[in-house]
Design a protein around this nucleic acid. Sequence first.
RNA 1: CGGGGUGUAGCGUAGCCCGGUUAUCGCGCCUGCUUUGGGAGCAGGAGGUCGUGUGUUCGAAUCACACCACCCCGACCA
Length: 488
Amino acid sequence: MSKELVSRKEDFSKWYNDLVAKADLAEHSAVRGCMVIKPTGYAIWEKMQQALDKMFKDTGHVNAYFPLFIPKSFFSKEASHIDGFAKECAVVTHYRLKNSENGIIVDPDAKLEEELIVRPTSETIIWHTYKGWIQSYRDLPLLINQWANVVRWEMRTRLFLRTAEFLWQEGHTAHATAKEAMEETERMLNVYADFAENFMAVPVIKGVKTPNERFAGAIDTYCIEAMLQDGKALQAGTSHFLGQNFAKAFDVKFTNKEGVLDYVWATSWGVSTRLMGALIMSHSDDNGLVIPPKLAHTQVVIVPIYKGEEGLAKINEAVAPIKQKLEAKGISVKYDNRDTQRPGWKFAEYEMKGIPVRIAIGERDLQNGTVEVARRDELTKEVLSIEGIENNIENLLKEIQDNLYKKALARREQSTQQVDTYEEFKKAIERGGFVYAHWDGTAETEQKIKEETKATIRCVPLNNKKENGKCVYSGKPSEQRVLFAVAY
RNA sequence: CGGGGUGUAGCGUAGCCCGGUUAUCGCGCCUGCUUUGGGAGCAGGAGGUCGUGUGUUCGAAUCACACCACCCCGACCA
């Protein structure tokens, strides 16, 4: 079977779908809109989880778990929250099946008194619970994260980028003051940006969402926005300042140091398996997946090239110490000496799966005391001495990590435009990428631009330069440029 | 949820318009031998409710209707 991909240039969408399938990351399931994450894909998600989880712990958070089901009544307590999620909730109405003439049916006698919502996010059940946990300022701050699955009944789905069920983490924190909650919101936004840039090698823009794009129930939504290879924007993570909205909705009060009863201040923040989509669409090429070393389940694969069983035995012997030295450096190594596949096949396979470094070693190398080292990011090869190979590989992995970030950053810079008129704006959006333009700050203008060009305001970048200008659409005065793009 | 398209072996497909032997080909899979520095070669072999259901017909992959799934485009969205 030809495992070749259609090129990104020819059909980016098909390239992505084929890549996810051929790199063995995930597949569609029997359930509409839901995917099966296969071991190769899940391994990357696990690496992401490990790195993020450590960052959460390092910033003082602990993990907990809240139920999948949420009583329907909880949702009606925060008005804008229900408005935001009502259209995409899965609802459990019964708790039993039974046999009938037509096979298994839902037992009409087993109707739930109160219907349960499969969580689209957990603010409501968590704040209901927090009410029982918080009485005094001494109980604050409460810094909790949970790793979970959530369900949002999407009309149109895309593997990893948008599925009906997805995996994520959601942090939910409670604080004594607005200032503290704001600081938490920013801290976690920075954690996400740090993770995206230093682990995923994906440069991101930190910013604030406009009211239109804000999380349902938040006072302010902060985000990191990435740009993928096709020039479209992807919201890669969000951190919300919830003010006292949920505390008021669920009556969560505490006594402060002055003995005064007050509502607590809240934040929530999350990233999901969507990050997998961002990762894939940021670095991969027409030969397949490219995984940054820090997120690669296997960082180095060693492929033996040999003739006959004796030949393989000799190479096995030579590889063992190399593998050991690499592993001693904390590098994850797979030695693929399966006799069922030929070397060329393995080369192509590991390229498709994005393993950062490949070492090939054959008879010729044994004589010369060398190995052939190939790097996935640039698809180049060099012959290196076995002596000190572990140091060279260690450096190479760092270099690849670095190189991927630099390439992604360069691509973003190249596709970032600044415009002053609506004509230019439309052309720039047509071309794709990020577009900085003046905006009058009204929801009406934002909406019109979206209708006419499909571009949305991704965010108002943090620490944005103040600069007087005129809105590209309305011509009204504006004090700063905001970031527009067509988004996933 | 609207508009368009597609469904034939694990994957990709021919056949369908114009109904008629045993449903085509490639890749993959299995067995054996030879191979192994970029997706090996030869020989043999297995694998199919033609998306599902109902109907038309002597006869349906092929015609009709309904349903389901997926893809593309819109509206919605992490």
